[in-house]
């Protein structure tokens, strides 16, 4: 199934309207994270964390990069528990925001519908970053993940056309969704879990739109299950 430029523009416009409408609930969600269940963020040991993840020997990819997952989390992340993970997620979201800005400014994206989509999706990522930042509390850095941003910037530098830029965005969205699935195996507070579960599907839907625009086969953007295969490893991408 494919999507036309005109349809994409319509979808993006409608998305933006709904997106703005949805903003009303955000302060309440953030407040809940600060003062409700999300406040009850507790640390846990690295060992417990690794047991929860249950991930060893996996490899992840962002675009063409293959990232080994030999080690999972730096001790600092484990010590911070949910707050550390939320701070990491914030950094991933902010890197995505910067990536979309760089993509839009690359001069390679000339289709208006695609530019509109990039703007809309960047707006979503900005909101996600704010929510994760609120969940992270004092652990939040309010900065894009430096290594992830550098990796994506390098890929964008090598992109030759609009499709190549879209493919990078597609991979980044898939990586974000995988990262949050990964996080769901480690987070402990109800607030942080529910926040992450509310964001994962949105990243997956971004990937669907981009996959359709790219004309990829449906199975490329509609897998049978979400997996952690493409997750961004906090150990390799420290904040």
């Amino acid at each position: 199934m494919e999507i036309t430029e005109r349809n994409l523009r319509a979808l993006v416009a409608a998305t933006d309207d709904e997106h703005r409408a949805g903003m009303g609930a955000l302060p309440q969600q953030i407040a809940e994270l600060h003062h409700g269940e999300g406040r009850k963020i507790v640390g846990h040991s690295r060992r417990q964390f690794m047991q929860r993840l249950g991930l060893t020997g996996l490899a992840v990819t962002i675009g063409s990069q293959l990232i080994p997952m030999r080690s999972l989390m730096p001790t600092s992340f484990a010590a911070d528990g949910d707050a550390g993970l939320a701070a990491f997620a914030e950094s991933v979201e902010l890197a995505a925001v910067e990536a979309y800005k760089a993509a839009a400014g690359s001069g390679l994206v000339t289709t208006k519908g695609v530019l509109d989509a990039a703007t809309t999706f960047a707006g979503h990522h900005t909101e996600h970053a704010a929510a994760f930042g609120a969940a992270a509390g004092s652990a939040a850095t309010k900065k894009p993940n430096p290594k992830l941003l550098s990796a994506v910037a390098g890929q964008l530098k090598g992109a030759k056309d609009e499709a190549a830029v879209l493919k990078i965005a597609f991979d980044l969205e898939g990586a974000a969704a995988a990262t949050y699935l990964f996080a769901l195996g480690a987070l402990t507070s109800k607030g942080a879990l529910q926040l992450t579960a509310s964001i994962l599907p949105v990243e997956a839907q971004h990937a669907v739109v981009l996959g359709q625009v790219l004309g990829l086969p449906a199975t490329a953007y509609v897998p049978s299950f979400e997996t952690v295969t493409a997750a961004v490893n906090p150990s390799d991408y420290p904040i």
Binding site: L11, A14, T15, A21, I199
Partner: peptide, 19 residues
């Protein structure tokens, strides 16, 4: 993801909200 595709067919927003 299924819902996003079907929304597109219906002419609706594929990604309805940020959350």
């Amino acid at each position: 993801r299924h819902a996003a595709i079907l929304a597109g067919v219906l002419g609706n927003a594929a990604v309805a909200k940020a959350f």
